[in-house]
Design a protein around this nucleic acid. Structure first.
Lengths: 339, 339
DNA sequence: GTGAAAGCGCTAACAT
DNA sequence: ATGTTAGCGCTTTCAC
């Protein structure tokens, strides 16, 4: 046991403060929670004692007594993903307004991890839960609600009318990107997508197909689908390699399900000396910070990520009816799609 | 008040479970915590009741009784900064091994915010605190330790022998970058730095000057310092504009205190039709994901950000003597510095 | 193997 | 204006 560690001495309790100040515990509590009810002299004595003992409230005891906590839990797919980073920051900013603390976890799209975090957060008595559900874990969410914890779905539309949600129209985002490529004259478009069990991927696929149909074309002829195991740059690079290795003429455009995938795809294209956008147009999704600054500035679909987090937290904390917010994405055209 | 909200019904307590199962609360507790001590028949009855009531432990009550919590608090400068994002993910990964929950906050380098979060986390009885201190808030940290909460400094060396820390040698990182530019023959080097009140900025400045002196040159003649109000791309862009507007011939190289600043600086250079690296070499810091994929791939200093978080959490949870870990950064040379 | 009871630190209701 | 008291939900002795 490390002798130098902190934490051997018991923390001062409200009773210790009361004893030192020569008052009752109730009075100390009043100084903390209803200062106006306490005389100046007493208040000063108590505050002195608090200072002297470095007293800090015990949130557990408080919460146990009050039945309500000052924490909110958020579960995103992966905090290292810039989209969720910005979302998390949005949540944090909203929570700060109400002096609430954020408990954060990444589910890695693993239902087991997700439900473990949900359980832990509920045990902690979070005031509410912001969750980006992974593959088919919506029942978990429903169950949590029944147990009495408010839930707002994050980056996911709500299938339950009484569960709030904040999402972006992914179908439309993908449709915007696809329509853009079709307008540019591309007749065969690769679609580097993630597993369809991910709602985002399924929706974006739907948007791609809808845009093709809308243009009066046959999706079966136009769209070349490639499914990636994970949505990072390396995976995008490998997928592009695999795509180019297929027999027959390759597509002339690629729509990637996110910017990291696009980053990887473009890396492979550069290594293979295939010109972007001349030989291969590329469109990404998320419009991350660096999209405009790439070797070939990347056309991408922008989502209001910070706002999504802020709004989700706001819905949770507000006392209105559960609302289902759907933000609209915007296509940002840059050189990679042949601007 | 929204009728549709969750949370009207009281959550089932251990007593409710006990009543339904026809046993005592103590037995339910044993089922939860010492299952082997309970007979099969009783255990089954209790588990059924738990299931039926959707019982979830109350962490506050548990923690109040036990005196120890299953949470760890982390305060970084800004979770939206990719360096801290990766660090946070490292922390999360280590905590997950011990089934611990992460409370996360961004101080925005504001000492007031920082101490508010510290107080909140300590009130919650976190098992420990991981903090990237902002301007001169080390006393806050010292005080917390005295109150009995373990602290590990994050991305900051420790001035106290008994306070653990995990940092990267920023002096050396900046020296590596500067030496590299000097070797390339640059005789005037701009240094886009943040406020010196930030430890990272002060250290990197020291590294820059040291490298110049080491090369037998006069820092006063070689280094052109520009101080940025904040470390984002826009700020870098403006600083570069300001630098170029100064009378006399501009420097031939720029070392930026982070990659986002470098991103902005390069954006302005492109807009001003100044070739990188021919007319202006650029080196960044952090080696973020996109550095290799920029219009001109960016030379940068790599830090083991995920590892920093992981290790910091590991030090906190371990029971060894407080250790002071110093990781070494590495220069990654790419086209922006004239490779 | 199980039950009864005490107490963690706090707040609010009530009493003075 | 201040003190007294009960009890939030849980775990852990200590009996039986």
């Amino acid at each position: 046991m490390a002798r130098t560690r902190a934490g051997t001495a018991r923390r001062a309790s409200i009773t210790d403060v009361a004893r030192l100040a020569g008052v009752s515990a109730g009075t100390v509590s009043n100084v903390l929670n209803h200062p106006s009810q306490v005389s100046d002299r007493t208040r000063t004595k108590v505050l002195d004692a608090i200072e002297q003992l470095s007293f800090v409230r015990n949130a557990s005891a408080r919460q146990l007594r009050e039945g309500t906590s000052r924490t909110v839990g958020a579960i995103v797919l992966d905090i290292a993903n810039p989209f969720f980073t910005a979302t998390a920051r949005g949540i944090e900013d909203r929570l700060a307004q109400d002096d609430l603390v954020l408990m954060l976890a990444s589910s890695d799209e693993d239902p087991e991890r997700e439900s473990r975090f949900v359980r832990q957060f509920v045990e902690h008595g979070v005031r509410g839960l912001l969750v980006t559900p992974s593959r088919g874990t919506l029942e978990t969410v429903a169950r949590v609600r029944e147990r009495g914890t408010d839930v707002v779905l994050l980056d996911h539309t709500s299938p339950f009318p009484d569960v709030a949600s904040v999402a972006v129209d992914d179908v439309r985002g993908a449709a915007l990107a696809t329509a853009h490529l079709l307008e540019r004259g591309h007749e065969r478009i690769a679609f580097l997508n993630g597993p369809l069990s991910l709602r985002q991927c399924a929706d974006r696929r739907q948007g791609v197909l809808a845009a093709v149909v809308e243009a009066g074309l046959d999706p079966g002829r136009v769209v070349v689908e490639v499914t990636l195991p994970s949505l990072n740059a390396d995976s995008g690079s490998r997928a592009m390699a695999e795509l180019l290795a297929r027999p027959g003429p390759p597509p002339t455009a690629t729509f990637c399900v996110n910017d990291f995938t696009a980053l990887g795809a473009m890396r492979h294209l550069r290594e293979a000396s295939i010109a972007v956008p001349e030989q291969m147009a590329v469109v990404g999704y998320d419009d991350v910070d660096f999209a405009p600054e790439l070797a070939v500035p990347l056309t991408s679909v922008r989502q209001p990520s910070h706002e999504i987090g802020w709004r989700a937290a706001d819905l949770l904390l507000g006392d209105g009816e559960p609302e289902q917010v759907l933000f609209q994405p915007a296509l940002v055209v840059r050189a990679s799609s042949g601007a």
